[in-house]
Computed example of a mutant assay.
Amino acid sequence: MKRIAIFASGSGSNAEKICQYFQDRTDVEVSLIFTNNPQAGVIKRACLLQIPIVFFDKKTFYQTEKILRILQNERIDLVVLAGFMMLVPPSLVNAFHKRMINIHPALLPKFGGKGMYGRFVHEAVVEAKEQQTGITIHYVNEHYDEGDVIFQATCNVDPDDSVEAIENKIHLLEHENYPRVIDELLAKMP
């Protein structure tokens, strides 16, 4: 059985879709959800789905021994970032080289980097008068949004689209594609 750990800091809609996608499978399990935000919406979603939650603070995360030990003890095959706002320390990235992925709500390399998440990305897309935007699923490295691209999907930006309209289009792309791409990556793992 392949085992997934999800890291999330926010509402958890992507984490929920991933959990639901794999919930009836016998070959894949979402084993844990990690969060650094005690107010995160992902907590309620994880509880409803009966997925164990691991809480941690910034100090614990950057002293990665504890987090790494949990991931190794749980025999995690793939670490999935889903709305996780912290830069992953190099020791954790190295321990899960090409086994840690992230989703970004834009077509990288555009609109990526520190501070470019959620609404900030969509505002930048509107301000730049982009005609297309989308999502990027990529491997995690030591820098925000710079890992090798695994998959991208696009959607049109209409001239009258609000930030909220773009956000809704992006959520649809994320929910449709992230679980499927995770499944494809797991299928290729030994």
Rank of each mutant, 00 (worst) to 15 (best):
M1D: 06
A5L: 10
A5N: 04
I6F: 05
A8V: 01
S9I: 01
S9N: 05
E16I: 02
Q20S: 15
Y21W: 08
D24V: 00
V28I: 15
E29N: 10
L32I: 10
F34K: 05
F34I: 02
N36Y: 13
N37T: 07
G41I: 05
I43K: 09
L48E: 15
L49I: 01
L49M: 14
P52F: 15
D57V: 07
K59H: 15
Q63R: 11
E65V: 08
E65F: 07
I67F: 10
I67D: 00
I67P: 00
I70Y: 13
I70K: 12
L71S: 01
R75A: 08
L78T: 05
V79M: 12
A82T: 01
M85E: 10
P89A: 07
S91G: 07
V93H: 05
A95G: 02
F96M: 11
F96E: 00
K98F: 12
H104Y: 08
L108F: 09
P109N: 14
F111C: 04
G113L: 06
K114E: 11
Y117I: 01
G118C: 02
R119W: 06
F120W: 10
E123N: 14
V125M: 13
E127D: 14
E130W: 03
Q131C: 11
T133D: 04
T133A: 08
T136G: 11
H138P: 05
V140G: 05
G147W: 14
V149T: 15
V149N: 11
V149I: 10
D161Y: 10
E164F: 11
E164N: 10
E167K: 06
N168E: 14
I170N: 01
I170C: 04
E176N: 09
D183I: 01
L186P: 01
L186R: 02
K188L: 08
